[in-house]
Amino acid sequence: MQLDQILLAIAIAAYVAGALALIAYFLTRNEGLRRIGIPLAIVGCAAQFAELGTRWAISGIWPLTNLYGSLSLFSAMGVLIFTIFAFRYRLWFAGGFVLLIAAIALGYATTWNEGFMPPVPALQSYWIKIHVPLVISAYASFMVSFVVSLLYLIKYYAEAQYRRGGVVHAAAAGSTGASIPISAASAYAALDDAESGVRVGARRGDTPALAAAAERGDAVALWLGSLPTLAQLDVMTYRIVGVGLPLLTIGIITGAMWAKESWGAYWQWDPKETAALVSWIVYASYMHLHTRNAWRGVRAAWISIFGFATIVFCYLGVNIWISGLHSYKV
C-alpha cells in the first residue's frame, strides 16, 4: 500500500469510529464518548489533508482536478469547519452526523479514484488552487449548517408533538401555565439572579413541552432537551451559513475570473456555474429572510435544508448527470 492509501484508510476508519462515538454521545451525553469522538475527528481530518498533500507530492499533480479529490476535500473541510465551530460554539452534538456524512462522502469519493491523472488544459491554471478550495469549503460549511438545521427541525417538531400530546407543565411554561408559541419575543422573561442581585431579561427555554416531559422522566425529551435551545440552534445555523455564503460568493467570482481566462467569458451559463448561482440565490434569500423575526427559526431551518439540497444537486447531480464544461467526466 502506498502512503496515500494508508492515510486514506486511517481517515475513513477515524471518521467511522468518530461518527459512532459522537452519535452515542448525542444519545447519551456521556462526556467520555465526546472525548473519544473529537480527537478521532481531528485525526481523520489531519490524515485526509496529509493524504491530499501526499498525492500532490508523489505525482506532482494538484489533487483537486477530479471528483475524487474534490469530494475528499469536501469531507475534510466539513470536519474542519465542524471542529472549529464545535470549539467556538459548543457544537459537539452535531459531530456524529457531520462525521457520518464525511465518511460517506469519502467512501463514495474512492469510487471515483482513477489513479494519478494529469489535468486537462483548461484545469492547468493557478485558479484551480484558489477557486476549487473556496467552493468546496462553502459546500462543506453548508453541510454543517444542514446538520444543525436538521437537529433544529427534529427538536422543533418533537416540541410540537409533545405539546399536542398533553398540557404543558406549569413550571416549565412560566407563570401563564399555557403553552407558549415558539417565537423569539415571547420566549424572553425577566429572571432574577439571586446571587448578584441583578435582574436580567433572558430566554426561558423555548421548548416548554419538552422540558415538562423531561421533568417527568421521558427519555426522548431528556435527550432532546439537552440540545441547545431552538434559538441557539437557529443562531448557530445562521453563523455557519454566514461562513459559507461569502465563501460561495468568492468561489463563484473566482470561478468567473477563471472562466474569463480560459473560455473568454466570465459567465457561459454552464450548468455547473448556473447551479452554483441557484444555491447562492437560496442562501442569499436565507440571509434576507433571517433579518425578519417571523422567518427566523423553523422557516429558516427549512430554507437551509433546501439550500443544501441545491448544493448536492449542484455538486454531484450536475457532475454526474448533466455534462458541461465543468463535468469531470469529459
Binding site: 450548468p271 441557484v278 440565490i281 448533466i322
Partner: peptide
Amino acid sequence: SIYFAVSLFAVWGFLTLIGVIVDQ
C-alpha cells in the same frame, strides 16, 4: 418589501434552475 425581494429571488432561482435542467 424584503418579501417581494425574496419572491423575486425565488423566481430568479427557479428560472435559473430550469436552464440547468433543460439544454440551452
